[in-house]
Write a protein that binds this DNA or RNA. Sequence first.
DNA 1: GCAAGATAGTTTCCTAGTAGACAAAATTGC
DNA 2: GCAATTTTGTCTACTAGGAAACTATCTTGC
Lengths: 150, 150
Amino acid sequence: MTGSVRDDVALGALGESLGFLLRLSQLESFRDFYHGLGDLGMRPGEFSVLMLIAENPRIRQGVLAKKLMIKRAHMTKMVQAMEAEGLVGRSVPEDDKRSIELHLTKAGHARIAAMRTPFEAHEARNLTRLSDAELAEAKRLLKKYLGLPE
Amino acid sequence: MTGSVRDDVALGALGESLGFLLRLSQLESFRDFYHGLGDLGMRPGEFSVLMLIAENPRIRQGVLAKKLMIKRAHMTKMVQAMEAEGLVGRSVPEDDKRSIELHLTKAGHARIAAMRTPFEAHEARNLTRLSDAELAEAKRLLKKYLGLPE
DNA sequence: GCAAGATAGTTTCCTAGTAGACAAAATTGC
DNA sequence: GCAATTTTGTCTACTAGGAAACTATCTTGC
């Protein structure tokens, strides 16, 4: 994708490996995320945590971790950090004393709002690599791969 | 994808984010890799290093790192470990005393051979989630996204 | 009702991977 | 030809994320 050095390297069977292609694509996508939103001091994983809490007020920490494929231990650390930063509030639900429910604070909502435009720009930049139809199809296929509803 | 807990969580805008879907898919794919090949004591990244060296004998370490989107520092560590393990040999090319060329040892080739069947099984398991045509299309789209030749 | 089993979050330790700095060697620009 | 700049691999310090162990709480099976 840049320069001729890369084009001289034969991928062999790896070039036909979905896992490999997914890995490279993910790295590429995250690189673009950091490029466009890195100044806002938030990593992709943290952003997805905030977004999901916003979309699902009072979601339980473990449920969130599972949905985002983040390990519980790490989710604890992330949430604690975001609580300390004032973005997230935590509470213990009455019906399950083991759990933690999460909600966004005003600052959390403001953070998300601040990231909206750069995030959309990040997403739009996908169209420099794929057409509108191809992008839609890629998303559809990935959702199917993941077993997510359309 | 398992249980009803996950289905109750709304993804919102994230569900339409290519980067997010790529991330989850990559995690999923790697999980399957570890499930099928974890016993062989090799991680996806290491496997891809060995494969690419096999496919490109005498490839330079930095070229390899760039192709696999692995940072130079980490590539050094990985290659040193594999050299210590007897899988990879290193040499300094005559025309560039700064560089390191890599080649597979007999043991390296044997390692790859031992991983062939489980790797192919790992790839084949993609067909439990996508059809033949969908899998081919997904790969095509990812390659296009990455700017790789077909 | 109660013990056994499972779950939820936490803490600590560990690892995979990165950033930054550096020296040696190659390349570039004049 | 030569100084300035860039490249290549290495090492060290750091970080993002996971594994394992643990406690408190809930659920299940009898």
